[in-house]
């Protein structure tokens, strides 16, 4: 599989840095466009990347997002240092949120983040250790029909 790897790029994300929120996703989108990835794949990967980035900004202290582009898929691995997720199944439920009021007021923390990532990816894996951090990995396939 690794021989089909076209590109690897890392992005640092700082918790609560709302001024720069969306920058990593925006760079990911630009890279995918340059690589001529099909628009439908870019749209899905951008939405999933944005939600992943926002989760780090809203909930974690800091994190790193790694973009790996293969011939047949786009993969993002987001590792953060943070409080972790005690109950992943509960967190996956649409509408469930632990965001504080000031975050809700900004229009974030609607409890749609993980659900949006799931909807827009073909593979989603979440690993979390409470009080240590969370790793979210998702993949968007590039199928023949996209090409």
């Amino acid at each position: 599989m690794e021989e089909n790897l076209l590109l690897v790029e890392k992005f640092k994300i700082q918790g609560r840095d709302f001024d720069r929120a969306g920058e990593a996703s925006s760079q990911i989108k630009t890279i995918l466009k340059k690589l001529n990835i099909p628009p439908s794949v870019i749209r899905k990967a951008t939405i999933a990347a944005y939600e992943t980035e926002m989760n780090i900004i809203i909930y974690a202290y800091h994190g790193v997002m790694t973009l790996k582009v293969y011939k047949n898929k786009v993969k993002v691995i987001a590792e953060d240092k943070g409080p972790g997720i005690p109950d992943i199944n509960l967190a996956m439920q649409e509408g469930y949120s632990t965001a504080p009021p000031e975050i809700l007021e900004m229009g974030f923390g609607a409890g749609m983040g993980l659900a949006n990532i799931k909807k827009n990816s073909d593979i989603l894996e979440i690993k979390s250790n409470v009080n240590k951090g969370t790793t979210v990995t998702f993949e968007v396939s590039i199928n023949e029909q996209h090409k």
Binding site: G22, E23, T46, M106
Partner: peptide, 16 residues
């Protein structure tokens, strides 16, 4: 159309 007034609405608009 939104009542949000902070910089993140531009990020969302740009990405979408």
């Amino acid at each position: 159309v939104t009542v949000q007034r902070h910089i993140n609405i531009v990020a969302v608009a740009s990405l979408r």
